[in-house]
């Protein structure tokens, strides 16, 4: 991906393809694809925090859920506008900063970060789940407990027009591309380079004088904000939020997308998210095999046999082909080395 011409042409290719899709498939498929794209934003945010920043967040759905709930509650109170969207990113980012302060400045190890984030999302799930009843409301928005918030007011275009199914799809694709470009830009800055350096060797980065805790806190908060944006889009997509978006299954799915796509890449988790969701939808249509069963087996097998995920594996193929054609062996071009965590 070092070639800028290739980069820009593939970006243009993706945009053209995305704009063409609604002309060739049914509205129902577009609706399904929209949610795949929204989840891909979520997958991208974890690919950034975990794959690039080396922070293993097991309960990433906490930020997704907070974003969705923040949007829904703000939209009911102030109407669906830029305030609600801003809050949907601000609330999870602030929450991430608070939680991150305790974790990163407390210098707790990777494994504890994972467990604490997981516990936090489970507690949020329990907390929201128990708020059914008219006495639990924020402003004029009832939280609704396990029933969630229904009929969430949805966004409209800046000129006031209603966003239809295709419009929602385009908006999601646009936000996915924007998030991707933003993360690529961030990683090319000085801060982003420190982020990756910490993943590679935290002790060394610290000894070189970088503020590891602060850098991790920023990475974690940015990841939280992007996950919140995905949550906001999700609330818009179904005009509904419920407590299951905090659930363990949702968190596990994000992990599976990133593991299968490849830690240390951004494109891998995006593509694997879309592919796995498509597979999940297909599996959901039959009654024999449980979806969770299949996803669980996939996760275990990937961790055991393909720990660096598919993207680094697929990225090697052109090199192998080229070296075969040239008739001489060639070193692999590293495309973001797979995160070797725990050993550092």
């Amino acid at each position: 991906m070092k070639n800028p011409v290739l980069n820009i042409s593939s970006l243009v290719g993706v945009i053209v393809l995305a704009f063409a899709i609604p002309y060739f498939v049914e509205a129902f498929t577009v609706l399904n694809f929209t949610v795949y794209i929204i989840m891909a934003i979520l997958s991208l945010s974890l690919a950034f925090v975990w794959g690039m920043g080396g922070i293993m967040v097991l309960g990433h759905s906490a930020f997704f859920g907070l974003g969705a709930y923040a949007y829904a509650i703000a939209a009911v109170n102030f109407g669906p506008g830029w305030e609600a969207v801003t809050l949907s990113m601000l609330v999870p980012a602030t929450f991430a900063a608070l939680l991150g302060y305790f974790m990163f400045y407390g210098r707790i190890s990777d494994i504890y970060v994972g467990v604490i984030t997981l516990a936090v999302t489970l507690i949020l799930f329990n907390l929201i789940n128990s708020t059914s009843g008219p006495q639990y409301k924020i402003g004029s928005a009832p939280i609704g407990g396990y029933n969630g918030i229904t009929a969430v007011p949805t966004l409209s275009w800046p000129n006031g027009n209603f966003i239809d199914i295709n419009g929602m799809f385009y908006l999601s694709v646009g936000l996915l591309i924007l998030s991707y470009l933003f993360i690529r830009y961030y990683l090319s800055t000085r801060y982003g380079k420190v982020t990756v350096a910490i993943r590679e060797n935290e002790r060394r980065a610290e000894l070189l004088g970088y503020n590891v805790a602060q850098s991790k806190l920023i990475t974690f908060s940015i990841g939280g904000a992007i996950a919140g944006l995905a949550g906001c889009m999700f609330a818009n997509w179904g005009s509904f939020v419920g407590p299951t978006i905090f659930g363990l299954v949702q968190s596990a799915q994000i992990i599976i997308w990133v593991i299968v796509g490849g830690r240390g890449t951004l494109i891998g988790p995006i593509l694997s998210c879309i592919a796995i969701q498509w597979m999940t939808t297909q599996l959901g249509m039959q009654q024999v095999v449980n979806v969770g069963f299949v996803l669980g087996i996939v996760l275990t097998i990937f961790v055991l046999l393909v720990p660096s995920g598919l993207a680094p594996l697929l990225a090697k193929i052109p090199n192998v082909v080229r070296s075969r054609l040239n008739g001489k062996p060639k070193e692999d071009v590293a495309l973001g080395s797979p995160a070797e965590e725990g050993q550092t």
Binding site: L58, A252, I255, G296, L299, T300
Partner: peptide, 11 residues
């Protein structure tokens, strides 16, 4: 890996 097992056992 054990999380995968957890999902699989529930399924």
């Amino acid at each position: 890996a054990t999380w995968g097992l957890s999902l699989a056992i529930v399924g």
